[in-house]
Nucleic acid binder design. Structure first.
Length: 345
DNA sequence: CTCCCGTCAC
DNA sequence: GTGACGGGAG
């Protein structure tokens, strides 16, 4: 048998085995899937794709439910204040996702009526939607045949084909695109189950660490598995040194309230409410009381934060702070790490 | 420590 | 084409 013919057969086997596995063992009853007989909602699919980027499924689902309850449709989202939107994203991180969704919702609703994109290339024009997300949304909503190439797929395909190019390189991207294009199911109507299955395979079986190759439906066409070298793929990016930033957080507080400032000058936590920040070598106010020091790894640097409290009799602290009742902090955009710092008070 | 992925600046 | 950036969870 020629090599090409063999490859076609293994591509076919890959897709069929994957879809059959997905039908039996993939995730079911996802909250963004339509109930029986209902049409799929592009807004929910879109939100789920954005929320589940960089976020574990279990965590994401809880936020998804809460978000949908408050913003049941795209018009609702478009007409809401950004601060409200951010407060429902608070704790998920990567807050640019929420800001971009809000912007995109306004675009979708501009012109007086709701106008969702009908193709991957149109989805991609919206802020916050890249190649992979656009393909996934259009696969689910209009059965468009586009290869999704999220981190799950990159991991699966790099292992299957022993790709040695580093994650993020243009070469790897190109190779995976070609391979994935061959994996696409014949029928457009199989795009949703195919897309869901490959994502589930990456999340449940072909995991970053400790992949469950014994349970994998496509291990027989996985070159790295056959050689016992699954751990070598995909080839990771070079590590970069993380700078450490020493800061002090000063939190004036009364019995029932705390004082925060709105982050404006920094891209990090922009528009979120955070403590007064003092650089390492500046003076800590005399009245401040040291509470705790903790490290907070951000993507490319490490925060080394000392938390100081100032107990106030009245809510009259200088410096543009706003006072918040402890009881309604949940309604405000506040990063998790700030909530953690507050818990030391 | 590692993992997630889209955007933007160069 | 490459790399910095961003946050939380495991």
């Amino acid at each position: 048998m020629s090599k090409i013919l063999k490859n076609i057969h293994s591509d076919l086997a890959f897709t069929n085995n994957l879809i059959n596995w997905g039908k039996s063992f993939g995730r079911k009853n996802l909250p963004w899937n339509p109930s029986y007989g209902k049409k799929i909602d592009p807004y929910k699919v879109w939100l789920s794709e954005i929320m589940l980027q960089q976020t574990q499924f279990r965590t994401g689902v809880k936020y998804f439910e809460r978000f949908i309850k408050h913003f049941p449709n795209v018009k609702n989202l478009a007409e809401s204040e950004i601060e409200t939107v951010l407060s429902f994203w608070s704790g998920l991180g990567y807050y640019a996702r929420a800001k971009n969704m809000h912007k995109a919702a306004k675009i979708i609703c501009s012109g007086g009526k709701v106008n969702f994109p009908k193709s991957a290339s149109d989805w991609k024009k919206l802020p916050g939607i890249g190649f992979s997300t656009a393909a996934a949304i259009s696969a689910f909503t209009v059965n468009e045949k586009q290869p999704i190439m999220d981190a799950n797929v990159i991991r699966i395909v790099a292992r299957q084909h022993k790709l040695i190019e580093r994650i993020g390189s243009a070469k790897l991207q190109k190779k995976i695109f070609i391979i994935c294009s061959k994996h696409l199911p014949k029928s457009n109507s199989d795009m949703p189950i195919y897309t869901q299955s490959i994502m589930d395979l990456g999340a449940l079986i072909c995991r970053p660490k400790e992949p469950l190759c014994d349970l994998c439906p496509v291990s027989e066409c996985c070159l790295s598995f056959l050689e016992g070298k699954v751990g070598n793929y995909p080839v990771k990016k070079k590590k970069v040194f993380k700078n450490i930033k020493r800061v002090s957080w000063i939190i004036p507080h009364t019995q029932d309230s705390i004082a925060l400032v709105q982050s404006k000058d920094s891209k990090l936590w922009e528009n979120f409410w955070i403590p007064i920040e003092i650089q390492e070598n500046n003076l800590i106010p005399k009245k401040a009381c040291f509470l705790k020091r903790f490290k907070l790894p951000i993507s490319n640097f490490i925060f080394d934060i000392s938390v100081w409290g100032i107990l106030c009799k009245r809510k009259n602290f200088e410096g543009g702070v706003r006072w918040f009742k402890n009881s309604n902090l949940n309604e405000k955009p506040i990063p998790s790490s700030v909530k953690k710092a507050i818990s030391f008070l």
